[in-house]
Amino acid sequence: MNIENLKQGMILKNYKELCSVLEIKPSDGNGKKSQMKELERYIKYHKEGNKFIIDEVYNEVKEKMDKRTNGNNNDLSKNLRYMILHLCHKNKLRSKVEVGYSKTFLYSYCGMINENYRDTKGNKKAFAQYLNLEQLAIEECFEYTDDRMGQALRRALSTLTNTNKALGYRYGYNYVLNSETYHMTADIDLETIIRDVENKTMKQMKMNRYDKIYNSGRWDDFKFKVINTLKNEYPLYFKDLKYYYNVIVLNYKDSSIKRTLDGFEEAFGLDFKLAKTNVNKYFSKSLDGTITRRHEKNKVLTSDNLDEKNIYRSSKNYVKEQKKAKNTIVKDKAKKVDFKALTSFDLDDENVICEQLNINNIPF
């Protein structure tokens, strides 16, 4: 759910257009109700007929009012914020005022996923074979895991920005040149160029969303076209471009980070090891709740929810299989997945992003 696309005063003609702007799939029934409930944590809106009118985009994300998980969410957010602060404090911005991190890097550094995540996401078919599960089960696991990670990270960053006043953030790009060994964060001008080229390329490919490009198997083609256009039309900046990727750009002053980090350590007794362990524990526990609720919702199937996913969610093996898959990519003590006995595979473009897991390559 990309809230960044919504602006105060925006008028969307119907629910379908709202979903397109938010970059989410339209749903119905309980699924739609859940989407709208989640949306109300980020914005205030009203309806005129089928139209959605955006009255306000909140500066601070509202917490979920769910007694089953609210305490767990607060604990997760607190420890997650500490880990982000720790990363910023460790990597002081001496010559720049901002730096971009891929979401995968942040998820890993903060402790929400283990090292199996990036390898298995790059080859879900082999992962399903490894766990002796259907590929549908693996797709299901990554769907809610990615969604919940995104929510948790946005909530933590929003609180650090609007409540703790420790940093600012935006969505942008990092890029790598053939002549360099490190990752550079695009400034606003270069970010605008990349985004414009992406939009034009998506229009040429008759695609209006990132996920549709990826799910249609055209991601490599899309990136190839964008990179070539950047090289040819903007040689001053991108003649030597190797690749680029989406990041969350953090901007901060070292003094603000240190002040807030010290406050967390004094108030909660946190350190790097404890906070990372806590993030992993609380996030894994919250996913257990998600798995259970999905199963409970679909125990009784009706004519309105007889699709493949809901039938699987209603099955007696759903909870056991999902916890097996989830634990493999989330739990910090999970056994390392070894695909060698099954098949050889190439990491897709999404995993190229994980080169950034070597933080020594990031320019500071």
Results as ranks from 00 to 15, higher is better:
Q8Y: 04
E17T: 08
V21C: 05
L22V: 09
P26I: 02
P26M: 04
D28G: 13
Q35N: 13
L39Y: 13
E40F: 05
H46E: 13
F52C: 07
I54A: 13
E63D: 15
K67N: 13
N74K: 13
K78W: 02
C88S: 13
L106N: 00
Y107A: 06
T120R: 02
L133G: 04
R148C: 12
M149T: 13
A156H: 08
Y182R: 12
T185K: 05
A186F: 01
N199A: 14
T201A: 06
M205Y: 08
K206C: 05
Y214T: 15
Y214N: 12
W219T: 06
D220Q: 10
N228Y: 05
L230C: 12
K231D: 07
L236Y: 08
K242Y: 15
Y244D: 02
N246G: 10
T260Y: 01
D262M: 09
D262Q: 15
E265K: 08
F268A: 03
K273N: 12
Y282F: 15
S284L: 11
D288C: 06
H295Q: 02
K309R: 15
Y312W: 04
S314R: 01
N327A: 09
N327L: 02
N327Q: 09
N327Y: 04
K331M: 10
L342N: 03
S344N: 13
F345P: 04
D346L: 11
D346Q: 13
D348C: 05
N351W: 04
V352I: 12
C354P: 03
Q356N: 04
N360E: 06
N361R: 11
I362Q: 06
